[in-house]
Design a protein around this nucleic acid. Structure first.
Lengths: 137, 137
DNA sequence: TCCTACAATGGACAATGTCTAAGTCAAGCA
DNA sequence: TGCTTGACTTAGACATTGTCCATTGTAGGA
């Protein structure tokens, strides 16, 4: 059921109730919660979990590459558990809804060597912005 | 000299010393300052300028499309006055340096209709991440 | 079962951004 | 030039998001 928990255990993570809860909250596709939302949902399952623990746990998951940090809006970072399939994000500027999308081609290829200024490039982040059908009424 | 100021005046902006200073701070290419950095430089030219004014002024410039908000790192937003030429950003993960780059092709084209979920898409934001020559030693 | 290192807690602190009430001033007009 | 007016600025309180640290708790191995 929980691939995420299994992978974490395999990496020698000590399994605590808190970490389990955070991982559970993040399950599923198209999940893009802020740290605060994760905390709120975690508290619902485990009332005494602290904010610092949620931040720590999310931070560790990001370091391990199990979760991706997304900065789609100006406010808080969001956390995306769909880390094992490369994808980009489609954001509604009105309601803030976020969808995972999978463009064709490799966006890295669009950047010619002459525009790389000697950088060793490891990653591209693409965010499409627009208005979703609901908000477009 | 200051195109930005001229354009703002044309749009009926009341020209104040504070707004002039903020616009001056933002002049030039490859300028990507945080609001706080803008404030610090503005204070150097006009000591009594307040933080709120800098935030207001930057916000208004963004609304007018004269300046772009960039969220390349997790911390503060940055402000990019190079709004009239479409471009993307190349960020060094170590030192945080940011460069404007101009990829070939239109990144919008990479997203097939089937992946648009009915959204009306107006904008794409692309951030390349890597390590700059200086930090790569 | 007991130990110990790792994890969680909670609260202070830091950084960034927003709001408001009151004062100030740019720009149009007589 | 000197008013008038409403837009602009100010200072600082407040809100939100994230980080740190000393203390307490506990998972998992011996």
């Amino acid at each position: 059921m929980s691939d995420l928990l299994d992978r974490l255990r395999e990496r020698g993570w000590r399994m605590t109730a808190q970490r389990r809860v955070v991982a559970e909250v993040l399950e599923g596709d198209h999940v893009h919660l802020t740290a605060d939302e994760v905390h709120a949902r975690a508290v619902a399952k485990l009332p005494e979990i602290s904010r610092a623990t949620v931040y720590n746990t999310l931070g560790e998951m990001v370091l391990l590459g199990e979760v991706i940090e997304v900065a789609t809006d100006k406010r808080a970072k969001r956390y995306d558990p769909n880390a094992h399939r490369p994808h980009q994000h489609l954001v509604c500027g009105q309601c803030g809804q976020i969808r995972d999308v999978h463009p064709t081609g490799n966006p890295l290829a669009a950047l010619p060597d002459s525009e790389r200024f000697g950088f060793r490039i490891s990653d591209v982040e693409v965010t499409y912005r627009g208005v979703c059908p609901n908000c477009a009424t």
